[in-house]
C-alpha cells in the first residue's frame, strides 16, 4: 500500500492496515503523535479502528518547542 505521509509518498507492507499499526510501524507508539487522515483529525481512541487505504493522505504531527 502506498500512502502520502507528511506530503511524501511512502510504501508500506501488507501488515499495516490501520492507523495504530502505522504508528507502530515507524516505532512511534510510545510518542505523542497526532494524526490527520484525508483532512479529518483523528482522536487517539479512533486510531486502531481507522482502516487505511491506498493513496490516503496522512499527516503525522507532534509537539515542538514554541512560544
Amino acid at each position: 500500500m502506498q500512502l502520502i505521509i507528511n506530503g511524501e509518498k511512502v510504501e508500506l507492507p501488507e501488515n499495516v492496515g490501520n492507523v495504530s499499526e502505522l504508528i507502530q510501524y515507524f516505532g512511534l507508539d510510545q510518542k505523542v503523535v497526532m494524526i490527520e487522515l484525508n483532512q479529518e483529525i483523528l482522536e487517539k481512541s479512533k486510531h486502531s479502528e481507522t482502516i487505511l487505504s491506498n493513496g490516503d493522505r496522512v499527516e503525522m504531527v507532534h509537539f515542538v518547542g514554541g512560544g
Binding site: 515507524f26 505523542v32 504531527v61 507532534h62 509537539f63 515542538v64 518547542g65
Partner: peptide, 19 residues
C-alpha cells in the same frame, strides 16, 4: 507551558522531544 505543533520526522523515532 506553550509549544507548537509541527510535522514529525517519521524516520527518526528516537529523536528527543522536549515533552
Amino acid at each position: 507551558l506553550t509549544f507548537a505543533v509541527r510535522r514529525m520526522n517519521i524516520y527518526e523515532p528516537n529523536q528527543p522531544n522536549f515533552l
